[in-house]
Simulated scan of single mutants.
Amino acid sequence: MISLRAIAYKTAKKGLMKPVFCANVTLLKGVENDIFGRPGKRQVTVMTELQWKLACNEISADLDWLTRRANILIDDYQFSAADVGKVITIGNDVSLLITGETDPCKKMEISHPGLEQALTPDWRGGVTCKVLSEGLIQIEDLVTISNK
Score class of each variant (00 low, 15 high):
residue 1 M to K: 13
residue 16 L to F: 09
residue 17 M to K: 11
residue 17 M to C: 06
residue 21 F to V: 15
residue 22 C to L: 11
residue 23 A to I: 03
residue 24 N to W: 05
residue 27 L to F: 07
residue 27 L to N: 04
residue 29 K to C: 08
residue 30 G to N: 11
residue 30 G to I: 03
residue 35 I to E: 08
residue 36 F to A: 14
residue 36 F to V: 00
residue 39 P to K: 09
residue 44 V to L: 08
residue 54 L to S: 02
residue 55 A to T: 05
residue 58 E to M: 15
residue 58 E to V: 01
residue 58 E to W: 07
residue 60 S to R: 13
residue 67 T to K: 05
residue 67 T to L: 07
residue 69 R to E: 06
residue 71 N to P: 00
residue 72 I to H: 09
residue 78 Q to K: 15
residue 80 S to H: 04
residue 84 V to K: 09
residue 88 I to R: 02
residue 91 G to T: 10
residue 92 N to V: 06
residue 92 N to T: 14
residue 95 S to G: 11
residue 96 L to M: 07
residue 98 I to S: 11
residue 102 T to Q: 06
residue 102 T to L: 12
residue 103 D to F: 10
residue 103 D to M: 12
residue 107 K to H: 10
residue 108 M to Q: 12
residue 111 S to P: 00
residue 114 G to L: 14
residue 115 L to N: 04
residue 115 L to G: 02
residue 118 A to G: 00
residue 124 R to M: 04
residue 126 G to W: 15
residue 129 C to W: 03
residue 130 K to T: 09
residue 131 V to R: 01
residue 131 V to L: 03
residue 132 L to R: 03
residue 132 L to I: 15
residue 133 S to I: 00
residue 137 I to W: 04
residue 137 I to Q: 05
residue 140 E to M: 12
residue 142 L to G: 13
residue 148 K to D: 14
